[in-house]
């Protein structure tokens, strides 16, 4: 590989991490919060799709993309609240409800989204961290959307809150031991309801990024499973908000490898390189899951571990 080809691939990977990672980040953070409270919400794929559609539609009608982002969050919160309420009922399995919510979310998104495939809505603006270099390639690779920064800020805030605030402690307690929380006089159902609702809000915002920034249009194949992948990233990040950010960035970067290598003429084996994110995730999972430390981070109340 020549120097210029190496530079192209390098900047494509950095750019890919910054462009592609944001939806993964928001969904993973939402799921992280939900799972910390002791529930699994597999429905976030549907939330992501509904968020993308809502954001696009609201941005189109109002002309304000940020209003679209907020509306996407609200639509996600509604789906999250539905999941949270249904799971409160006796003998309801949260995984099964999650799958139902996933189909429900994509279904209503497709139903209401039909009218928005053709029109063009105002998109979110971005700014470049690399504009000062005067190099077009670097400037493009370092295009940053404010939502990425919001995501990172939310992650740091969440990590701090889990460790240092009473609210964080209550969420963790509900997730680790429901009897202990009940004994403390905390309503476990309410905590989980609120956590799932806010988790849904975050996932909806992630959807807004898809339709309003990158790839930046609404169509039915938009998510292609990213919401599900992000749920898996939470396990990969071992329920740490900050590690969710790293996992999302890594996943975005790995996803850019396939197209970037083909663009510089390394064209053999593109199916393999396109699978890079998944292979990487698996490898790191295998490498990290072996340690005893890994199990220590699992919330004790999760139905998958109980």
């Amino acid at each position: 590989m020549s120097d210029s080809a190496f530079a192209i691939v390098f900047f494509a990977i950095v750019g890919g991490a910054l462009r592609v990672s944001t939806p993964f980040m928001f969904v993973a953070l939402g799921e992280c919060l939900t799972e910390k409270s002791g529930r699994v919400n597999l429905g976030l794929e549907g939330t992501l799709v509904l968020g993308a559609m809502t954001a696009y539609a609201v941005s189109y009608h109002s002309g304000y993309p940020w209003l679209g982002v907020f509306a996407a969050g609200l639509s996600g919160a509604v789906l999250g609240a539905m999941h949270g309420y249904i799971c409160k009922l006796p003998k309801v399995n949260d995984i099964a409800v999650g799958i139902a919510m996933m189909l429900f979310g994509t279904g209503i998104a497709f139903f209401f989204g039909k009218a928005y495939i053709q029109p063009s809505a105002p998109r979110l603006e971005s700014f470049s961290l690399g504009a000062w270099t005067g190099n077009q390639q670097i400037a493009t690779a370092l295009q940053i959307n404010p939502l990425l920064l919001v995501g990172i800020a939310v992650a740091i805030l969440m990590a701090w809150a889990f460790a240092n605030t009473k609210w964080g402690l209550i969420v963790r307690m509900a997730g680790d031991s429901a009897p202990a929380a009940t004994a403390m006089g905390v309503s476990v159902d309410l905590v989980r309801f609120l956590s799932t609702t806010f988790g849904g809000f975050l996932a909806g915002v992630g959807g807004a990024f898809l339709s309003l920034f990158y790839p930046g249009s609404w169509n039915q194949g938009l998510s292609s499973g990213q919401g599900l992948m992000a749920v898996a990233l939470v396990i990969f990040a071992r329920w740490s908000p900050v590690r969710c950010i790293i996992a999302a960035l890594l996943f975005g970067a790995a996803g850019a490898i396939g197209p970037a290598l083909q663009s510089v003429g390394i064209t053999q084996g593109y199916y393999f390189f396109n699978a890079a994110p998944y292979i990487l995730t698996l490898l790191i999972m295998i490498a990290s899951a072996g340690s005893k430390r890994a199990m220590r981070d699992v919330p004790g109340e999760l139905s998958i571990t109980k």
Binding site: R19, G221, S224
Partner: peptide, 8 residues
């Protein structure tokens, strides 16, 4: 694959 198409 909209995201990968945009990346490509």
């Amino acid at each position: 694959m909209p995201v990968r198409e945009a990346e490509a």
